[in-house]
Design a protein around this nucleic acid. Sequence first.
DNA 1: GCAAAAGTGTTCAGATTACACCCATGG
DNA 2: CCATGGGTGTAATCTGAACACTTTTGC
Lengths: 227, 227
Amino acid sequence: MYPQVLKTLIATDCIIVGIEEGTLKLLVIKRPIPPLKDRWSLIGTFLGIEETAHQAAHRVLYSATGLNNIYLDQLHTYTRPDRDPGGRVISIAHFALIRIADYHNNSSKQVGSKWFALNDLPKLIFDHDNMVNDALAKLRERAKFNPIAFELLSEYFTLKQLQNFYEELYQQKFDTANFRKKVLSYSFLVKTNKKVKDTSKKGSFLYRYDRKIYEELRSKEFKIRFI
Amino acid sequence: MYPQVLKTLIATDCIIVGIEEGTLKLLVIKRPIPPLKDRWSLIGTFLGIEETAHQAAHRVLYSATGLNNIYLDQLHTYTRPDRDPGGRVISIAHFALIRIADYHNNSSKQVGSKWFALNDLPKLIFDHDNMVNDALAKLRERAKFNPIAFELLSEYFTLKQLQNFYEELYQQKFDTANFRKKVLSYSFLVKTNKKVKDTSKKGSFLYRYDRKIYEELRSKEFKIRFI
DNA sequence: GCAAAAGTGTTCAGATTACACCCATGG
DNA sequence: CCATGGGTGTAATCTGAACACTTTTGC
């Protein structure tokens, strides 16, 4: 139907973020195909014929981690003609948030992939370093107003772990008293009667995030800020 | 280099927004090519061989409006396999902010294009209605923290015009006293000694936006909210 | 002088900040 | 019994919303 103008390959690359022991980490892979085979790379794939970019990203996430139902959002599309020395390929980058514990518990994950702390990342191929920076910037924006912390933390977490996530993401300390008051002022953090004692003698209570309560609040047009 | 997987056409479509007489408007065009020739459509083009999406969007904006140096930002990439009945085409949507007065003053604009008020838009082809909705949502988000109002208003404007922009974008009224206090609390709105008398007998002072001052403020990590 | 838009001041409630303080417990 | 991290209370300050008010000018 259309005149024969440029046709290109479409890729999707995923910036996969998780938090472990208070440190933000990124899942990358030793690139399995040329060019630049065996160099560190984001995990990606080419778009299939009957597939949206979102579906392709979910497909590659499943093959990399064995997990479904992952938080996934389109980030930006990278189109520089020389970005991939293997040919003209544009890449629709997505970012994904993962509970690393779930990842470790899952057997069907891909070999050759590895979690790196953000401040210890190897050089990535192509423009993947840019993608990571853009993803982190977007994550910082989004985390101020959206409950994405709970996509990374495990189901039950302490308030200190929650605070650690924000401190790690924004690279700054927050006052504990004020932080607790703020997040507890909303009702969607539900205190359980379980205590965990791995960081103190007193032990600290576990909380869980109640999505229903959050969404009800949100629908009432409340301004909900996390930080 | 890569195996022969799917190659597709890449398009870019522009959501071109302006404000005129207190009303937000969108620039659309009677589609010049089949399929759906002569139906209302966003203005777009196919990506050239040695071109980024950003460059292609600027190219199509120039041909549509005769203007360069337009505020342009990537919005989202639309990839549904059936989105274009003419073939598999993915579209990298951008949104652009225009001073409509500049547009009218310019002779080299494309014929067949037309400004519609947002609440009077005709049905657009393909998924272009979705694109418009997504663009407006993003604009609303962005306008809270970024000085994009000044990309739409002319160089000199009254505070009432500025307020009108926000009232139009968010479809709600703001208290004039509080609005003025807020925007004037930052120093980047510079009062001139010119008055304009087309809406009142008293007349109202014109202000201009000083980008340098804004950027200096911003670099000092101030939290700058517009609304 | 008066209507009408431009522009200012005052008040009060709620949020934010800084910081001092209490609590529980394993060693 | 005390060091340590968990958890709470409070006063000072800042911000935002509401609304009453003054100013200027053409008719």
